[in-house]
Amino acid sequence: PTPPYLKWAESLHSLLDDQDGIQLFRKFLKQEDCADMLDFWFACSGFRKLEAHEGNEEKKVKLAKAIYKKFILDNNGIVSRQIKPATKCFIKDCLMRRHIDPAMFDQAQAEIQTMMEENTYPLFLKSDTYLEYA
């Protein structure tokens, strides 16, 4: 069978589909001061998965605000700097109108994902962190 660390090199998704892979990638991102990108990516996935049963509406609003506050509001944050102004406006607008949609962070997540795919993920595969592990 293919060892997990070889699978991680196939695609970002195979890496993010494995707990050990996530842990190692996070360690690398932390050294590069951009672990927030990974947290944001998972927060967006978790938000989308929140089910719409009763009593959840308040939780959704609270969570959407928490995600916005932690990752997007501060323009100097690593996540905020990678997200397009129009995307940020869209999210802010959803929050202000309390129009909480499961897909409201999808575009922002896609932008961060592209950034990881084109930048941090290839760097990770070449990093000492990964090579030593492998």
Binding site: D17, D18, G46, K49, L63, I67, K69, K70
Partner: peptide
Amino acid sequence: IDSEDDLLQECISSAMPKKK
């Protein structure tokens, strides 16, 4: 503030793959 952080952590964990 704590509960906001907890909520965020819970959300992040919920999206992670389960241990195989």
